[in-house]
Design a binder for these strands. Structure first.
Lengths: 162, 162
DNA sequence: GCCAATAGGGATATTCTATGTCCTTAATAG
DNA sequence: CTATTAAGGACATAGAATATCCCTATTGGC
């Protein structure tokens, strides 16, 4: 059970977009080059962000992506769900219905107890991701990344932002 | 990103095994029939439980599986990890290393900030599963399941337990 | 108006995992 | 001795993840 690598890509891309000056856009090409990713496939992840309304896009040269909200208004969960989907990790196939002792036509009400517990764990996972904002990530990165690298990366991005 | 259906199977099987009288065993065949599952494939899940030390097995007619510990000493996490594995859902491919601004040979220390956050969410998921015991499940099921069905299921299992 | 670059998205190929089946081996109860 | 079991290896199938390619409409700069 692994998350798509696109989730990782989307998070890194959002971190970059968070540093973009207001009103400017960064293209898939630039994001792919910066992260060493296949441009066409990364594009699918970015389309996911776009369809979820997390980013705005514009066409043409100088076109690309920018965040649709402030980094403090974007959670990890928003980004993860935009790419990975909102479905739960535990799928209940209701195998209790196969119990040979079950009276014919009998139907238990409500979801299986096992599913309820597994779904609570899924919700704990989501709740954790919901509690972390993109702005928190940027703050952490600004401490983690050496000042020189941070600065040169910012300039690299600005050079390519339309 | 879905858990294997084997996880669901293993949890249901453990719930049944929890009701088995001390010293008796229940076969794959009986567990598969009770849940309407393919016997050979369910066997793989049960082998996972066995390898993790959660159940004991014995061979021959009257052979099968029984819990290796009391239901209060078995957590959902134990069972889930025995079947699904212990790996995290988020795989960090360290794409920050592709940053074109990076000095040659430069190597950031420690895991990426994004990975750390995603791993915290994974840990929240595990922590929730760790907090639920098999005995909790049995207690819930005993309330959920109509008394008649509970009783007849128990007898069905006892008939087949070696 | 024209050209180049862009996002969007459909079609297709490839690889990997999950799912499921089949068969052999060793152990065990009756 | 026989029937039944768990363990596990080999193999087949289905579906998802991971790409790649191509076409379309839009847009900015000339």
């Amino acid at each position: 059970m692994n998350l798509k690598s696109q989730v990782e890509w989307a998070l890194h891309c959002c971190a970059i977009l968070a540093g973009l000056p207001e009103g400017r856009y960064l293209s898939t090409k630039a994001l792919a080059e910066f992260h060493g990713l296949p441009k066409e496939y990364l594009s699918k992840a970015l389309q996911g962000l776009s369809q979820a309304g997390l980013v705005n896009t514009t066409l043409g040269p100088t076109g690309g992506y920018r965040l649709a909200r402030m980094p403090a208004e974007l959670t990890f969960l928003d980004i993860v769900e935009a790419v990975e989907g909102k479905s739960r990790t535990f799928i209940c196939n209701d195998i209790r219905a196969n119990n040979p002792c079950r009276p014919a036509g009998f139907c238990e009400e409500g979801p299986c107890a096992i599913a309820r517990i597994m779904w609570e764990a899924d919700e704990a996972w989501r709740e954790k991701l919901r509690s972390v904002k993109l702005s928190d990530l940027v703050e952490t990165l600004s401490k983690d990344i050496p000042r020189d690298l941070w600065k040169s990366s910012f300039e690299w991005v600005l050079d390519r932002a339309g």
